[in-house]
């Protein structure tokens, strides 16, 4: 514990605290349209960041974010509709329900590896959507209506969303800088090797799965408060899962600020700009994903960092260079001072 992976680990935490306080304060200032947009973006951020922790740091590529958004949303909505309890309890119930679901599913899902895990989570999301659609008590296909006067709205809802997103960011910082995160990264890079070094693989994966599904469920509750009317197609739709993947991959998988950037780029560039052209939007999303995976597999954020360093710094030293792709790892002599690098990228 005395040895930290990255020195100065307190400044990201301080920056997060500051940003949270500022955003929280903005909740009392901004107009209702901006607040509404803010809630949407913050929910996307929380969901994308949860996916980022699971996939980027833990190597578990999930396609089931929608299942946890729906669980959280419906848990909060049904609690408000069927009991007289207040919204704070609904906010607690949403992540608890999502975590219970993931705990239940983990027995099966965490036995799956790689693509099979992805397919398993996708199947869960689709099955859950079908289940809700046929579940009369939960409103069936037409959904449920949250009592609008019983939930926070406007500035208060925005502030709630700020806290949820901040929690997601804090978890990401923990995944990045803690010893737990280091072990998680080891499992991601080579699972048998990690087990061979004494890392309890299943336990660590569960420890990553539970809080991330909790966060996703929490975001689901906020979405339910915002939408008022929630339906299987609205909160359990596969679009939530795809957006989480797209936003994180575009921004930078396994980075802290990548998803923040990704949410902004994808939302403003695609979802918002092409609202009237649903089909075209899907096509462009697909093309964007292919382009990113092909030309900037680490996402836009690391690319920006690299470009900034190139522009500002005198010359990148070893280890700060452009993110390496997987080409030609072997059999290359490392460049040394006596043998200057012959070909240099522009």
């Amino acid at each position: 514990m005395t040895l930290t992976t990255v020195p100065r680990r307190w400044w990201p935490t301080s920056a997060l605290l500051l940003a949270t306080v500022v955003c929280f304060a903005l909740g009392g200032v901004l107009d209702s349209g901006t607040l509404d947009l803010g809630v949407t973006l913050l929910c996307y951020l929380a969901i994308a960041q949860a996916w980022n922790i699971l996939a980027g740091f833990g190597g578990l590529v999930s396609l089931g974010s929608a299942a946890f958004v729906a669980t959280g949303g419906y848990a909060a909505a049904l609690l408000l509709v069927h009991t007289g309890l207040g919204w704070p309890l609904a906010v607690v119930a949403a992540p608890v329900a999502a975590m219970l679901l993931s705990l239940l599913l983990s027995a099966a899902l965490l036995r799956l590896r790689g693509d099979y895990f992805s397919i398993g989570t996708l199947a869960v999301a689709i099955a859950l959507q079908a289940l809700i659609r046929n579940w009369a008590w939960a409103g069936g296909a037409s959904g449920v209506t949250v009592p609008a006067d019983a939930v926070p709205s406007g500035g208060n809802l925005f502030q709630l969303a700020v806290l949820v997103a901040a929690l997601a960011m804090a978890l990401t910082l923990y995944a990045r800088y803690s010893d737990f995160g280091l072990r998680l990264a080891a499992i991601r890079d080579n699972e048998p090797a990690a087990a061979g070094l004494g890392v309890a693989v299943r336990r660590h994966q569960l420890a990553a799965l539970l809080p991330t599904s909790g966060i996703t469920g929490l975001a689901g509750a906020v979405i339910a408060f915002q939408f008022i009317v929630i339906s299987p197609d609205g909160v359990a739709g596969v679009a939530w899962s795809l957006n989480a993947v797209l936003m994180t991959v575009v921004g930078g998988t396994g980075t802290i600020l990548g998803p923040v950037l990704g949410v902004a780029v994808v939302y403003y560039g695609l979802t918002r700009g092409l609202q009237s052209e649903q089909t075209l939007s899907l096509v462009i999303e697909g093309v964007l994903l292919i382009g990113i995976v092909r030309f900037a597999p680490q996402g836009v954020w690391p690319l920006l960092c690299w470009a900034t360093r190139r522009l500002l710094g005198p010359r990148p030293g070893p280890g700060t260079g452009r993110p390496v792709t997987d080409r030609g790892k072997k059999d290359e002599p490392a460049p040394t001072a006596s043998e200057p690098v012959a070909v240099d990228a522009v």
């Binding site: 030609g328 059999d331 290359e332």
Partner: peptide, 10 residues
Amino acid sequence: VSSGYGDMLA
């Protein structure tokens, strides 16, 4: 013949 990967000549 010279060849290599990225910035490096192997």
